[in-house]
Design a protein around this nucleic acid. Structure first.
Length: 860
RNA sequence: GCCGAAGUGGCGGAAUUGGCAGACGCGCUGGACUCAAAAUCCAGUCUGGCUCACACCAGGUGGGGGUUCGACUCCCCCCUUCGGCACCA
């Protein structure tokens, strides 16, 4: 009988479904493992070959660990909100819900076709109101929390309100301080504005990335993706919901050290957070009581600050611009505003313009001119810098172009054409009150900061590149934000008991025509009247970004149908954290940082028990087309999983994707190689099953030969260790070696071949189940125990030792394991090949390594 | 420009507390089976030299240098590819 993969695979997929084979629950007697895939966005084009790579990897580990006695949580779901369904709706007026359901059905069919052992009773869908009800609930948790810098934790906003009532801002270091009585004197709107400065979710009017074609704003993290696709993004000030992720910058950075994640991913997160240590320094403005605050990482170069530069958007520019310069400055600001950040960055030449005003360098007491230039960004630090052209290349270029003075204040080699940005001893840095001369850079930093702090002119400061997360989108197909804007300007939240706040039905899907989302068109939904007091309001029309649903889905899997809580605490405690998480590297700073942030907030508020969600993370490498180029429709090199499974079967597909090479590496598809693993499975089939559909008569209850038994134990060992280390390619290679040897045997020991089926099963579960059944077993092998290996039987009895002369292999001999060194040496000296190369020359040195080699170093 | 990862046969890749380079698979070559083909099985396959052949010799893991009895593995410099960041003060 031929290996009829289609029949076999269908049979076992139905069996697993019917028997709910992979359904699991909490079991305190077993050790738990949580093995997670990044859930897919169910696009209209269906699964591509990249999906099964990660999914198969986790499935192999899951099946292996399950058989090794672990209680393994391995779920799947759908990240189903997103723009494509909404755009399709605008063209066809077909509700995104319908499109999404169809796409999910396709994905589900395709994933089931691969024989992945998910617990399908835990499937989640971010667009399901019973799911997004809790996304909205978590949003309200964030809205109703603030970050207490003293404990570095999120706390309920009520605690802040109490603190303000009791002692104002006296115990907090804040910009807008007030006393308790001032707080009490504030109007509700003023109080609301004050609290907004602390909430973890808040509304702010800031310059955002607006994309006209998409009709929505984008997060900083998303801009690149869309501009690459040819969309244009402009900065414009808009009122938007923000998430105060910056409050967690330090913890996101620190806790990353404990994660078993790819170095490059951790590095990307570190870069994105962008921590730098330095100081704030206030420069008094001449003829004014105001000052300009700058951030610098090199306060030690303060004596070299010969001018200042403000970002064109800096709020002080208006005040500083002198009458004579006003027209120039205005023109420059307009030009800068027109350019995008990318355009600004692309410019070779520095541009800028003098404001007509001067500041005082607090160290030298000199007057220094204040300029504006677009190489200073409003979005980082204070939007103003002290320019030290002697020790900053950008300032140097600017100073050269505009003939501004350059003063060297750090000792360096002679190079007049560039700034010296390294460290060194201070020079030209003596003032009346403080001197940095002859101090090393770190000492100079300490000294100057101490002086600045004493004089109240500045203080040490840690600055982050990370910005708060722009959280609202002008879209229909997303989670509604459960907030109501009342007519009097106050914000109300939709009570928890009224969640989920459902998306309204629309007669026609179309853009709102304004900067609002299409939700604005649902008049009945938008307009709100409080049933109790009759006050009127308007619902928030923005929706949440796609990242919202994926920020916490791993928690919902734990308790997917709980109607009272997002997740039962006892279950959460049992399953969390995620032990292994596999998904694409493209989420390194988006999903993976947002999810960590939300998780930390939930942790602070006592809703989850771990400070990090994902302990071990790996990325699957990109699968390229057969031509080693990225798969794309336009190149015509796209491989469709349906076709592959149809021609060779799911087991071959799984095996091939794992055999191609290391999981994390980028690698090209090869249909020839799929045939290779397909041949292997055919060989496995023929190893067990005859043409007449019986179990091969050569499989008998006999003891194995010593040689074959050793190979068996080696195989079990290698496959076990390789799965643990996610080295699936070498595990499969060992399975092939075992099969090739077994084929050669005239009689085959049944016990060992039986266990081989178990060892094969995580990789090729369908054929394994079929063989298992044909070997006379009644139950699925999914919960059979994983074969153990005997370390004593893995070891070779004899071993090949090489004899070298001057480091070159001249002979090899087979000797018993652990042959003593003296014996090896004697054998080597007797060896013909060795003798020939020693050729009577004196032996200067002997190196003998047991079980490895003998090396003679001889004179010439 | 800066940060990170990686360069091994015709191809995908194996082998690192420094100790036989090329496991396994693909492809290719030859053979068996067959009327023939497919499928399957067996043998060979890093390069060069020498040889009827076996054997033997030399070279070989992006390039150059170094450490070492011995380097794909460790150190320094350079080149290439991929990923990320990119006026972040």
């Amino acid at each position: 009988m031929k290996y009829e993969f289609l029949k076999i695979e269908k049979k076992w997929q139905e069996y697993w479904d019917r028997n709910r084979t992979f359904k699991i629950g909490e079991d305190p007697t077993k050790k738990k493992l949580y093995i997670l895939d990044m859930f897919p966005y169910p696009s209209g084009s269906g699964l591509h070959v990249g999906h099964p790579e990660g999914y198969t990897a986790t499935d192999i580990v899951t099946r292996y660990k399950r058989m090794s006695g672990f209680n393994v949580l391995h779920p799947i779901g759908w990240d189903a909100f997103g723009l494509p369904a909404e755009r399709y709706a605008m063209q066809t007026n077909i509700h995104p819900r319908t499109t999404t359901a169809e796409n999910i059905a396709t994905f589900r069919r395709q994933i089931k076709m691969l024989g992945l052992s998910y617990d399908w009773d835990r499937e989640v869908d971010t667009t399901d109101p019973q799911y997004y009800r809790w996304t909205q609930w978590i949003f309200l948790q964030l809205y109703n929390s603030w970050f207490d810098p003293r404990s570095k934790k999120a706390r309920p906003i009520e605690t802040l309100r109490e603190e303000f009532r009791a002692r104002g801002t006296s115990a907090l270091e804040v910009e807008h301080s007030f006393t308790a009585s001032e707080w009490i004197g504030k109007t509700p709107l003023q109080q609301q504005a004050a609290l907004a400065e602390y909430r973890l979710a808040y509304i702010a009017e800031i310059p955002v990335n607006w994309c006209e074609q998409l009709g929505t704003v984008l997060a900083n993290e998303e801009v690149d993706e869309w501009t690459e696709k040819g969309y244009s993004v402009v900065r414009r000030p808009m009122k938007q919901w923000m998430m105060r992720i910056t409050a967690y910058a330090e913890r996101l950075l620190e806790d990353a050290d404990e994660l078993d994640w790819p170095i490059s991913t951790l590095e990307q997160q570190r870069n994105w957070i962008g921590r730098s240590e330095g100081a704030h320094i206030d420069f008094p403005i001449r003829d004014s009581h105001q000052h300009i605050r700058v951030f610098t990482t090199r306060p030690d170069t303060l004596f070299g600050a010969t001018y200042m530069v403000l970002a064109p958007e800096h709020p002080l520019v208006d005040v500083l611009t002198s009458v004579t310069e006003r027209s120039h400055v205005e023109r420059y600001r307009k030009e800068a505003a027109r350019k995008s950040d990318v355009e600004r960055g692309a410019e070779q030449e520095k541009t800028g313009i003098f404001t007509g005003s001067y500041a005082i360098n607090p160290a030298t007491r000199e007057q220094i001119p204040i300029w504006i230039a677009d190489y200073v960004l409003m979005g980082y630090g204070t939007g103003a810098i002290m320019a030290v052209p002697g020790h900053d290349q950008r300032d140097f270029e600017f100073a050269k172009k505009f003939n501004l003075p350059i003063r060297r204040v750090v000792e360096a080699g002679q190079d007049d054409d560039a700034a010296y940005e390294g460290e060194g001893l201070g020079v030209n840095s003596s003032g009346e009150e403080v001197s940095l001369d002859a101090l090393s850079t770190p000492d100079a930093k300490k000294t100057i900061i101490a002086w600045l702090e004493k004089k109240s002119l500045g203080r040490a400061r840690v600055q982050f590149k990370l910005h708060d997360w722009l959280f609202s989108r002008q879209r229909y197909w997303g989670e509604p934000i459960p907030i109501i804007h009342m007519e009097d300007g106050t914000l109300r939240q939709v009570p928890e008991s009224e969640l989920p706040l459902l998306l309204p039905e629309l007669a026609k899907f179309q853009p709102s025509g304004t900067t609002e989302s299409p939700l604005a068109l649902a008049t009945n939904w938008v307009n709100y009247v409080d049933p109790a007091d009759g006050k009127k309001g308007r619902r928030e029309t923005n929706t949440m970004p796609q990242w919202a649903g994926s920020c916490w889905y791993y928690l919902r899997y734990i308790d997917p149908s709980n109607e009272r809580q997002f997740c039962d605490p006892a279950k959460e405690k049992y399953w969390m954290p995620v032990d292994l998480y596999i998904g694409g590297a493209e989420h390194a700073v988006l999903h993976l940082m947002y999810a960590r942030f939300w998780h930390k907030v939930l942790f602070d508020l006592g809703h989850v028990s771990t400070k990090e969600p994902f302990m071990k993370l790996r990325h699957q490498g990109l699968i390229l087309g057969e031509d080693s180029r990225k798969m794309s429709k336009s190149r015509g090199n796209v491989i469709n999983p349906d076709t592959v499974v149809g021609e060779y079967g799911a087991d071959s597909m799984r095996l091939f994707e794992m055999f191609m090479g290391p999981l994390e590496e980028m690698k090209p598809w090869s249909t020839r190689s799929v045939e290779g693993v397909f041949r292997f499975l055919n060989r496995v089939w023929r190893l067990f099953v005859t043409e007449e559909e019986t179990i091969d008569a050569s499989i008998q209850d006999i003891p194995p030969t010593e040689e074959f038994e050793k190979l068996y134990h080696q195989t079990v060992k290698k496959v076990s260790l390789d799965i643990e280390a996610l080295r699936f390619n070498t595990a499969i290679s060992q399975l092939m070696i075992f099969t090739n040897e077994a084929m050669k045997l005239e009689v085959k020991p049944r016990a060992l071949l039986r266990n081989f089926v178990l060892v094969l099963s995580p990789f090729a579960p369908h054929i394994a189940e079929e063989l298992w059944e044909r070997l006379g077993n009644k139950e699925s092998l999914a919960f059979e125990s994983w074969p153990s290996y005997d370390p004593g039987k893995v070891i070779e009895k004899t071993i090949e030792v090489v004899f070298q002369v001057n480091g070159k292999v001249r002979s090899r001999v087979e000797v018993p394991l652990d042959t003593p060194e003296e014996e090896l040496e004697r054998l080597a000296l007797d060896d013909v090949g060795v003798k020939r190369h020693i050729d009577g020359k004196p032996i200067k040195r002997k190196i003998v390594v047991k079980n490895k080699l003998v090396n003679f170093v001889v004179g010439s």
